[in-house]
């Protein structure tokens, strides 16, 4: 993507006396993790391509508090939530797109009880809507006929019942979408949820991401698609563990789509 996209913060939008269609909630992984930043840029490319005006909070964005809550620190979670809510309400935000199922779940389900009421969409849902409305079109692309498996992120799938949106986006690419044995309601976690991302696993006989990677690699896919920066880390590590990184790519649904956008 050679085109430069200007990323405007909500403060800049406000200074111009305007407001964008949506707020893009980037999330911590999407802001700081090098691999996840590429997903973030793919999402902005899609938004730009579809002509969606969007803003980000930039330095005013703070962790939603999700990992604190799942780790059991409700105090810290609610402090983060209330701080974020006062920023969001200050900009009169109505609609949010997130690049992370954990941010998505927290903003959508846990903020309303603390005074933050927004229409919240995960980026795979948002992209699916753009495709449905014809605001983005697909042409060619590298994934035609390629075997793609989708790893359901827990907080998107079981957590919020969103199974179809990411699959619909993959299907549009004319790819060979193959279901894993453990998929949808029965999807196996990548091992990072519930604040596990930030600690070593408890003693056991295997890492969860290795268990999942074995299942995925048994299918011999060209691509493992996912929709979560934590799943991205875990699956990438898993594929590397088996030295399969040159044959099997791990990509976010947004990255898959960017490749096939009609110029």
């Amino acid at each position: 993507m050679s085109e430069t996209i200007t990323i405007k913060s909500m403060a800049e939008w406000q200074a111009e006396g305007k407001s964008p269609e949506v707020l893009f909630w980037v999330g911590c992984a999407g802001s700081f993790d090098d691999r996840a930043k590429r997903i973030t840029r793919s999402i902005t490319t899609i938004l730009h391509h579809a002509g969606i005006s969007f803003g980000v909070l930039g330095t005013e964005e703070a962790c939603t508090g999700d990992p604190a809550k799942r780790a059991g620190n409700e105090f810290l979670f609610q402090m983060m939530a209330m701080t974020n809510i006062s920023v969001l309400n200050g900009y009169n935000i109505k609609k949010i797109v997130t690049g992370c199922p954990h941010c998505f779940n927290t903003l959508k389900n846990e903020y309303p009880g603390l005074g933050g009421n927004y229409e919240v969409l995960h980026h795979t849902e948002f992209i699916k809507n753009l495709l449905d409305e014809g605001r983005i079109k697909i042409e060619g692309g590298d994934f035609k006929g390629k075997k793609i498996v989708f790893h359901d992120p827990c907080y998107l799938g079981r957590g919020n019942g969103i199974y179809e949106a990411p699959r619909k986006v993959i299907e549009v690419l004319d790819a060979d979408l193959t279901e894993l044995k453990r998929s949808r309601e029965k999807g196996l976690c990548c091992g990072a949820g519930g604040a596990q991302m930030f600690k070593e696993a408890e003693p056991g006989n295997k890492e969860v991401n290795i268990e999942r990677s074995e299942e995925i690699l048994a299918e011999n896919p060209a691509v493992v698609a996912t929709g979560c920066p934590f799943c991205m880390t875990m699956m990438t590590d898993g594929v590397k563990h088996f030295n399969k990184e040159s044959e099997v790519k791990v990509l976010d649904v947004a990255e898959l789509l960017v490749n096939s956008l009609k110029k």
């Binding site: 827990c154 079981r158 029965k186 196996l188 976690c189 949820g193 519930g194 696993a201 408890e202 056991g204």
Partner: peptide, 9 residues
């Protein structure tokens, strides 16, 4: 308790 990934499986 710390082994849980809160995955809801």
């Amino acid at each position: 308790l710390w082994a849980c990934t809160s995955c809801n499986a």
